[in-house]
């Protein structure tokens, strides 16, 4: 029963977060322009679209977004359009924003989710190494590297890595178009497409993994070191349980709990990494789309993409909330 309560509470919190994001979107994309005397409708209407005259487009968008309504009424129309994914038409691409996002979302998901999992694993594996060599050179080196990943600009190291592995050693493909095109010039389909896409994404995924594991590694290590001196570990040792079993079974399982909590905060960081990596590696994902939108000052694209990125983050957070009780049995009773 209390588990149910925990879950309802968490889901409610995440829905509130989503609601906050919608309000925030509204403030940025509707209220701010209005304050500065810019008609938001102007920002949403391309000069031409499928040969339709601009006035007709304005009218159509007014109907959809209620852009001519007063702010308070407009909010509900706006919220409805976001919740139903009516995100407007990109001015620079001249396509519905949602179809642009649909094409790019899987790519970003393919980047984010594996690197999230891999970086957590890396954080734990290196953390275990540190814990078992506490205070020795290996531990100090690993911990220092982890702290440094926090300060090394992802975009800088990314370029170096891309140059070295992609252009210099030629281990990984550097061009997506080439990667997913077969030798006779046709775009690959089916399994072959996904295999080659993944081959192309390997370097970026590994890179995001390496730049984002640091904080969780430090967290896991410090927690593990603290646990090493805790009562239950002493008791386990006194019971003659093998040291390695204590480390790999008991310490790991306990120290991983705050790491999972931390992932929630790291998500914001991860998406920043994704924007850079997509830009550097030329990956057509949500982050690069956002940069394109910003370069062209394409408001519908910016708004829609930002909303989807935030929504994606909220969904990952919620997924974490849902698996959390499996990791920490105590959570139900908090």
């Amino acid at each position: 029963m209390s588990l149910l309560r925990y879950l309802t509470k968490r889901i409610a919190e995440r829905i509130a977060l989503l609601f906050g994001i919608i309000i925030f979107n509204f403030i940025i994309f509707q209220v701010l322009p209005t304050i500065y005397g810019v008609n938001p409708a102007e920002l949403y209407v391309p000069l031409t679209y499928k040969g339709l005259p601009r006035s007709e487009l304005v009218q159509a968008l007014d109907n959809q977004f209620g852009l001519n309504l007063p702010l308070d009424e407009r909010f509900f129309v706006y919220m409805k359009s976001l919740l139903t994914f009516h995100l407007g038409i990109s001015m620079s691409y001249q396509q519905p924003v949602i179809s642009l996002i649909e094409a790019r979302f899987p790519v970003t998901a393919l980047l984010v989710i594996p690197s999230l999992i891999l970086s957590t694993i890396l954080a734990i594996v290196l953390g275990l190494y540190s814990i078992s060599r506490q205070g020795k050179v290996g531990d100090v080196a690993v911990s220092f590297t982890s702290i440094m990943t926090y300060f090394i600009p992802a975009f800088w190291l990314g370029e170096i890595v891309l140059y070295f592995f992609g252009f210099y050693l030629r281990i990984f493909p550097t061009n997506l178009a080439e990667a997913i095109t077969s030798s006779n010039g046709h775009t690959l389909v089916g399994v072959a497409y996904w295999v080659d896409l993944l081959k192309f994404l390997t370097l970026p995924i590994l890179f995001i993994t390496v730049i984002s594991y640091g904080v969780r590694n430090i967290l896991f290590r410090n927690n593990g070191v603290e646990l090493m001196g805790s009562n239950f570990v002493n008791y386990l040792r006194a019971r003659g349980i093998d040291d390695r079993k204590i480390l790999y079974k008991h310490i790991t399982r306990n120290a991983v709990i705050p790491v999972v909590t931390r992932v929630g905060i790291d998500i914001a960081f991860l998406f920043a990494g994704v924007v850079f990596i997509e830009d550097i590696f030329n990956i057509p994902g949500l982050g690069r789309l956002l940069v394109r939108g910003a370069e062209n000052l394409d408001v519908p694209l910016l708004g829609g993409d930002f909303y989807i990125i935030s929504l994606f983050a909220v969904i990952i957070l919620l997924a974490l909330d849902l698996i959390y009780p499996l990791i920490d049995p105590r959570v139900k009773y908090e």
Binding site: S230, N231, F232, N234, Y235, L236, A238, R239, G240, H250, R253, N254, I257, I327, D328, P329, R330
Partner: peptide
């Protein structure tokens, strides 16, 4: 250990692995 000599600690909150 445990076969011949066993140990009873103070059963504080964290004497057993919580998970």
């Amino acid at each position: 250990v445990w076969k011949d000599i066993a140990y009873i600690p103070q059963a504080s909150m964290d004497v057993l692995d919580p998970v």
